[in-house]
């Protein structure tokens, strides 16, 4: 084992065992197993169409994705028994590849509902209006998000970089136990990538875990992984450390996968 990997003897945060899942009757994930402990950063790399995003959707409970066998345990609970919002309130958060635009709902309104939903789930009182505004504005400032953007409708008319910053803001406010970054670096220029990475790193309290899904290693310049998994054909075909990402980048997926499957 590589010395950089953060090992723990605690219980797993997320434990995926022998998972198979299909979309519209077509099996996309095939017998996948993966365990993530508190504080770890895992990266899943693979070519387009390998099923990487399917995994993120299965974890978050997006309708249309059917688990056909296997199990997923999150913080000791059967994740598949939980609704989408319960999964989120338990501490699962997805930074989406394409954050959704919602006309007519301002970011502040949306954030208020999301924060208060989590607080209610945890048995806490709702935040007062001044508390809420102060909290959001402080975090927004750290991520170089203009106040004016908070008053606008959710993601409507935002650039790719702005959308990802807003995703990072939500992550900072909701403090999830496990964040899944689904191609979080797509559509980002280098400055935006730095801001988003810094935002994510600032949240590192030694406990939060990350599952980064990507097909190139730009983001890994800024967020250091503990494990890198190569994902192809609906399953993990090889696991290594950050050097594996460099190897993948150098060889390209086609050759690498052929080699790995020999």
């Amino acid at each position: 084992m590589n010395g950089n990997r953060r090992m723990t003897n605690k219980k797993p945060l997320l434990e995926i065992k022998n998972l198979s899942a299909s979309v519209a009757g077509k099996e996309i994930i095939k017998n996948l197993s993966l365990t993530i402990f508190e504080g770890q950063t895992h990266v899943i790399m693979g070519p387009n169409g390998a099923g990487k995003s399917t995994l993120s959707h299965v974890l978050t409970g997006k309708p249309g994705y059917e688990v056909t066998s296997g199990s997923i345990t999150f913080k000791g609970k059967n994740l598949l028994d939980l609704s989408i919002d319960e999964r989120a309130n338990e501490g699962l958060f997805l930074i989406m590849q394409y954050p959704v635009e919602i006309p007519g709902v301002s970011f502040m309104t949306f954030l208020k509902y999301a924060l208060n939903a989590k607080r209610k789930y945890l048995g806490l009182d709702e935040l007062s209006a001044p508390e809420f505004i102060k909290l959001v504005q402080t975090q927004a400032q750290k991520l170089a998000i203009d106040k004016e953007m908070l008053g606008r409708a959710v993601n409507v008319g935002f650039s790719g970089g702005e959308k990802k910053r807003m995703e990072t803001l939500q992550m900072a406010l909701l403090k999830p136990a496990l964040s899944i970054l689904d191609e979080a670096d797509s559509g980002l220029d280098i400055d935006a990538l730095k801001v988003v990475s810094k935002g994510i790193n600032d949240l590192d309290d030694g406990k939060r875990a990350l599952l980064i899904i990507t097909h190139h290693q730009d983001l890994l310049e800024y967020i250091k992984p503990d494990f890198v998994h190569v994902f192809a054909g609906g399953r993990i075909i090889k696991t290594g450390d950050k050097n594996l990402a460099l190897e993948l980048e150098a060889k390209g997926y086609t050759d690498f996968i052929k080699e790995a499957q020999c």
Partner: peptide, 14 residues
């Protein structure tokens, strides 16, 4: 459906 999922994925009940 995507808007609905987005809100739910942030902890807001259906």
């Amino acid at each position: 459906a995507n808007e609905l999922f987005y809100l739910q994925s942030r902890g807001i009940d259906e």
